[in-house]
């Protein structure tokens, strides 16, 4: 080769695909090191009776005891139920708020860019800070929420937000909705802007009312975006830890204990890492199935 011993001519037709592999390599290696390897380790751990996992210890004997225990544990089914409730409540509320705000700020009006910024604001606030603010808002003695409810005459004595199971769940859900809806809003807005103006003009000539245009044009055209966004929001709720952990720690009476909180608690409070790994693996399987189901529906609509 003319360019010396180390020259590597990637422009040759026969080597065109090399560049792709070379560029992919760092990301693939990184993912293998920080995701795939721990994943394999935790699947492995879930089949062992391990307290504190240590890589320098020999493998414990294979057992399915963790899974047997898991599926018979009321705590696990409770965590599943709490997670499901959170997903349904938070996802639907995020979509109503997110789509609504996106539709609003998609209109032309004065101060639109400011409005768009405000809608997206909660997304920019760090999760822990948001949670601390909400913890103050819902403080049972000094909180804003009790004062508002009292002033409006909705309640006659203060609610103890963090010791009542239903109230605690409501607080967690509210915080997650506030933190989660801007993502839906941003994604929907991007989707809305890609819908050609002519579709609406044609629908108006066809006599479609504003509501019919939303139902028959906007929503179907947004379906691909909505599908992907639903999956991402759902996975975020599955894995979110800091909001619940900081607000309630999973309590009271495990009313806000999701699968991720339960995993953390088993692994790092009770040091049952084999058991915790089993919860993690089951969560992963549920997530994959849920994502598959959601994604499969979306392209059918377009």
């Amino acid at each position: 080769m003319a360019g010396g011993r180390f020259s590597l001519d990637l422009a040759r037709p026969s080597r065109q695909h090399w560049l792709g592999y070379i560029l992919l390599a760092p990301a693939v290696l990184l993912i293998a090191a920080i995701i795939v390897y721990p994943l394999i380790v935790s699947v492995d751990l879930s089949f062992q009776n391990v307290g504190i996992a240590r890589l320098d210890q020999p493998r414990r004997p294979f057992t399915t005891a963790n899974y047997e225990r898991l599926f018979t544990s009321p705590d696990f089914w409770n965590a599943c139920w709490v997670t499901l409730k959170l997903i349904v409540v938070v996802t639907s509320a995020c979509f109503i708020l997110g789509l609504g705000t996106a539709l609003l700020v998609n209109n032309r009006f004065k101060g639109r860019s400011v409005a768009r910024l405000l809608v997206a604001m909660p997304w920019a606030v760090p999760e822990v800070i948001a949670v601390v603010i909400f913890a103050w808002i819902f403080d049972s003695s000094f909180g804003l929420m009790n004062w508002v409810f009292l002033s409006l005459g909705l309640i006659d004595k203060t609610i103890n937000w963090f010791s009542d199971p239903d109230a605690a769940f409501a607080v967690v859900a509210t915080t997650m909705i506030w933190k989660g809806y801007p993502f839906v809003s941003i994604m929907s807005l991007a989707g809305l802007q890609s819908i050609p103006e002519d579709y609406y003009a044609a629908a108006r000539v066809d006599g479609a009312s504003a509501l019919q245009r939303l139902r028959y044009i906007t929503l179907p055209c947004l379906m691909p975006v909505i599908g992907v966004t639903t999956v991402l929001v759902m996975l975020w709720i599955f894995r979110d830890f800091s909001i619940i952990y900081v607000l309630t720690g999973g309590g009271p009476l495990k009313a806000t204990q999701t699968l991720s909180i339960m995993t953390y608690e088993q692994a790092f409070s009770f040091f049952r890492m084999g058991y915790a790994s089993a919860i993690g693996v089951v969560t992963l399987v549920i997530c994959v199935i849920a994502a598959k189901l959601t994604m499969r529906r979306a392209p059918d609509n377009l």
Binding site: P196, D198, Y199, A201, A202, R204, V205, C221, N301, L302
Partner: peptide, 17 residues
């Protein structure tokens, strides 16, 4: 919609879904 007209658009404006 109340004018009793129909319109054909340059890029057809057919709904993809």
């Amino acid at each position: 919609g109340d004018r009793d007209i129909a319109m054909v658009f340059q890029n057809y404006a057919l709904y993809p879904h």
